[in-house]
Simulated scan of single mutants.
Amino acid sequence: MTDDEVVEAVRIVARAGTLPPPAAPEAVAVAEETIGYPLPPLLRRLYVEVANGGFCPNEGILGVSGGAAQGNFADIAELYQDGPDPSGRIPAGLVLIYDWGCTIWSLVDFRDPAGAMWCNYEGECWPQGVNLAEWLTGTLAGSLTVETLLESQPTS
């Protein structure tokens, strides 16, 4: 799917639910400054054109300041403000975006304009083998689940 098609697919799903309004460009800029990397273009578009988080999957991804929270987590910059991970297991530029529960997180690689997706589970971090567009469309279709994330975990 193209970015335009992904934006439209998320917009259609967003119309069916209650989502926060789009993010102000200033809130996106503050998140980028805190994280130290620009948002992948697709994620930026979704935040400023569709909704400030809350979409795909289940209760939705975290937004930037003023957007959708998830559990005790207010926004992506809040999670990143002290650095990517004090333990050093999560490389700089990987941003927590969705908590699947049970210490399983999906992360977006802000160093990559396509937004390569990563998984973190019990302190281990690995690439999922999909980009943000594929992750979003997979979660919308129900083909990308917590089970499929864990199946992508490399074996030692």
Rank of each mutant, 00 (worst) to 15 (best):
D3I: 15
D3R: 09
D4Q: 11
E5R: 10
V6W: 01
V6I: 14
V6Y: 00
E8D: 14
A9V: 03
R11F: 02
R11G: 07
I12C: 07
I12W: 07
I12P: 01
R15S: 14
A16M: 15
G17C: 10
L19P: 00
A23E: 06
A24M: 12
P25F: 07
P25D: 11
A27S: 11
A29L: 05
V30Y: 12
A31Y: 01
T34L: 03
T34M: 11
G36I: 00
G36F: 00
Y37D: 04
L39R: 00
L39I: 03
P41D: 10
P41A: 04
L42S: 03
R45N: 06
L46H: 01
Y47E: 09
Y47L: 15
V48A: 05
V48R: 01
V48P: 00
V50A: 04
A51V: 07
N52P: 04
G54M: 02
G54H: 07
F55E: 00
C56F: 06
P57R: 04
E59W: 10
I61M: 12
L62D: 05
G63Y: 00
S65M: 13
A69E: 10
A69Y: 08
Q70T: 08
G71H: 08
G71S: 06
F73G: 01
A74C: 03
A74Y: 13
D75W: 00
I76V: 14
E78G: 12
L79K: 05
D82M: 08
G83L: 08
P84Q: 13
P84A: 15
D85I: 09
D85G: 00
S87M: 13
G88C: 12
G88W: 14
G88E: 13
I90V: 15
I90K: 07
A92P: 13
G93Q: 09
G93C: 15
L94I: 09
V95K: 02
L96Q: 02
I97S: 06
I97F: 03
Y98E: 03
D99I: 03
W100M: 11
G101N: 09
G101Y: 14
G101P: 07
C102D: 15
C102G: 04
I104P: 02
W105A: 02
S106I: 02
L107M: 14
L107E: 04
D109L: 13
D109I: 10
D109A: 07
R111W: 11
G115A: 02
M117E: 01
W118Q: 02
W118V: 05
W118H: 13
C119I: 11
C119W: 04
C119T: 12
N120S: 15
Y121P: 01
G123Y: 14
E124I: 02
E124W: 10
C125P: 07
W126Q: 07
W126E: 11
P127S: 07
G129D: 10
V130E: 00
N131F: 07
E134R: 09
E134W: 03
E134P: 05
L136Y: 12
T137P: 03
T137L: 13
G138K: 08
G138L: 05
T139W: 02
T139I: 04
L140R: 08
A141D: 15
S143C: 12
L144F: 11
L144M: 10
L144Q: 05
T145A: 10
T145R: 09
T145Q: 06
E147T: 11
T148Y: 11
L149R: 08
L149K: 01
Q153N: 06
Q153C: 13
